[in-house]
């Protein structure tokens, strides 16, 4: 499952470079004084290996939570990089999430189970969050379960002013929300898919099952 695509590709690439280098050496030996061919001489073609790769489009299927020295964004030549914490270590004691994207952490559970104790005030570690308990149900047309927006699990982290009124008018049903906007990073997507759990974890938002008529099912999950 955790086969590192990057490494396999690196190996393939190394083979390609090697055979490429061989071809160059051969051509140098054979036709040392030949004029360089122009680009038009070569018909466009792709190596079979590149055409039929197993995952043509899937990105980022490699290892997750890599140490900063190996993650491709931090500069390994920078002395501070090696001192930074590896996400895997930080997350080792936290509840896991199921999706293949994001941090792989269930931040709701991690907070609820006191695995982390993030400060609500910059200076005072004892200050408690002002939690507001109000669920807003947004009915969804079609087959997808309804969306339940929980104020409590948001206000444990956030201030009302983080959402109201810039992202959402504080009035039930007053906001037009669609998946297209969320995917592009608007509405719920301001946070989900950037820093909070990713958009692919559909059922965490679409959590209220409904019957065929669209009414909430009797045993709907809260």
């Amino acid at each position: 499952m955790t086969v590192n695509k990057g490494r396999i590709f690196a190996a393939l690439a190394a083979m390609a470079i090697f055979s490429g280098a061989l071809a160059t050496v051969m051509s140098e030996k054979g036709e040392a004084h030949a004029a360089p061919a122009t680009k038009q001489d070569a018909a466009p073609a792709a190596a079979p290996a590149a055409v039929n790769t197993f995952n043509r489009l899937l990105k980022g299927a490699g290892e997750r939570n890599l140490p900063p020295t190996e993650d491709g964004i931090h500069d390994p030549a920078n002395p501070g990089t090696a001192l930074l914490q590896t996400p895997r270590d930080a997350f080792s004691t936290l509840s896991k999430s199921t999706g293949a994207m994001g941090n792989g952490v269930n931040w709701v559970e991690a907070l609820k189970n006191n695995q982390i104790n993030p400060r609500y005030d910059r200076l005072n570690p004892a200050e408690e969050a002002v939690v507001f308990d109000l669920d807003i149900v947004r009915e969804v047309k079609g087959s997808m379960p309804n969306v339940v927006y929980p104020h409590d699990r948001h206000t444990m982290w956030l201030d009302c002013s983080n959402c109201h009124p810039d992202i959402f008018i504080p009035q039930k049903g007053a906001n037009q929300i669609s998946m297209a906007q969320i995917v592009m990073g608007e509405k719920c997507g301001v946070c989900h898919g950037k820093v909070a759990f990713p958009v692919g974890e559909c059922r965490r938002c679409h959590s209220q099952n409904k019957d065929a008529s669209g009414a909430p099912a009797a045993k709907a999950k809260k």
Binding site: G6, A16, A47, A50, H74, N103
Partner: peptide, 18 residues
């Protein structure tokens, strides 16, 4: 084609933390 293959596969994508 070999270099074209290289363009497809390398450089490996950055896999920094979410």
């Amino acid at each position: 084609p070999l270099t074209a293959g290289l363009l497809f596969t390398a450089p490996p994508e950055a896999e920094a933390e979410y």
